[in-house]
Each structure stands twice: as C-alpha cells, then as structure tokens.
C-alpha cells in the first residue's frame, strides 16, 4: 500500500454532512413513509368495521420496526457511500463524517423542541385511558404522539443544521 495520506478539506471545498445529520434525514423520510403506509392500511379498515374489531397491532409494530430498521440501514449505507466518495477525492472520511460538538448540541435542541408536544400528547393518552376509550383509540393516540414528536424533532434539527443556531 503506497496510497497518498488522506487530507482535510480545502477552505473553499464544500463541507459534507456528518453521519448524524444523514441519519436525521433518513429518519424523517422513514417516519413519514411508515406513517403514510400505516394510515393507508388502517383508515379504510377503521371506516369499514367497528373500531374494536380493527386489527391494528401488527401494522403498527411493523411501522415502528420498519422506521427503526430503515433509519439504521439507510444511515449506514448512505454514510459508507459518502465515505467512499470522499476517499476517492483524497479526503479523510473519518474526520468529516464523525459526530462533533455541534451534532450533540443540535440533538439536545431537537429533544427540547418536541418534549412539550410529547408531554401534552401523553397526557391526552392518559385521559383517554381514564375515559375508558377503546384500545384502538389509545393506540392511535400513542402512535400519533410519537410520530408528531419525531417529525418535529427531525425538522428542528435539520433547520439548525441548515441555518445555524
């Protein structure tokens, strides 16, 4: 091996996304995709049958599992592709893809942005259980709370990545 040592980006070279920023993009896409697919299955079922008889558990678990799996696999594949592209240009992928202080700070701000929404949503779910609502509605409320929180978090993070603090 007599490869040239890898270098840092030049001053006027475009900065690439860190692996963490990529994972936010993938997570947002996966969540929206899974939610739309889930709704496409459940809404017609709920309209045609009494809600107590709708089987929603398996589709929802598939939607949640699918979101997680897609995010992990998508992030790995996309980051490897970006790393290879950088390597071909002679830049050091490890340094540029690695998470840094900025990622950490953005992560925290993302959590903060969604925490009120999630808190109110969970309170709503608790009230549904107290009102003796059907398990179908409790489950849907939980899913919507989680999905809305996740989407808020992802959009907040992406805005911070694009526009700064």
């Amino acid at each position: 091996m007599n490869a040239k040592p890898l270098r840092l980006p030049l001053d006027d070279e475009p900065q690439i996304m860190t692996a963490e920023q990529r994972s936010v993009w993938i997570y947002l896409a996966a969540t929206v995709l899974a939610t739309v697919a889930y709704a496409a299955i459940i809404v017609p079922r709920a309209l045609d049958n009494p809600v107590a008889e709708v089987s929603w558990v398996r589709p929802m678990l598939l939607a949640i599992g699918g979101t997680i799996l897609l995010t992990i696999v998508g992030t790995i594949v996309w980051s490897i592709a970006a790393g290879v592209r950088l390597g071909l240009r002679g830049r050091d992928p490890e340094i540029e893809l690695e998470s840094d202080v900025r990622d950490k700070e953005i992560n925290k701000r993302g959590t903060t942005a969604s925490s009120t929404l999630v808190g109110v949503g969970l309170l709503g779910v608790l009230i549904l259980t107290m009102a003796g609502a059907d398990h179908f509605w409790i489950g849907q409320a939980l899913y919507v709370t989680g999905a809305a929180g996740g989407i808020t978090e992802a959009i907040t993070k992406l805005r911070l990545y694009q526009r700064g603090f």
Binding site: I64, L122, V125, G139, L142, G146
Partner: peptide
C-alpha cells in the same frame, strides 16, 4: 418517557 410509551403500545398489542 419514550420507553414508557413504547411499553404501553406493546401492552395494548
């Protein structure tokens, strides 16, 4: 809180 909601979903299931 996230773990609690996920657990609640599984219990519903």
């Amino acid at each position: 809180t996230g773990i609690a909601s996920l657990t609640a979903l599984i219990l519903l299931g």
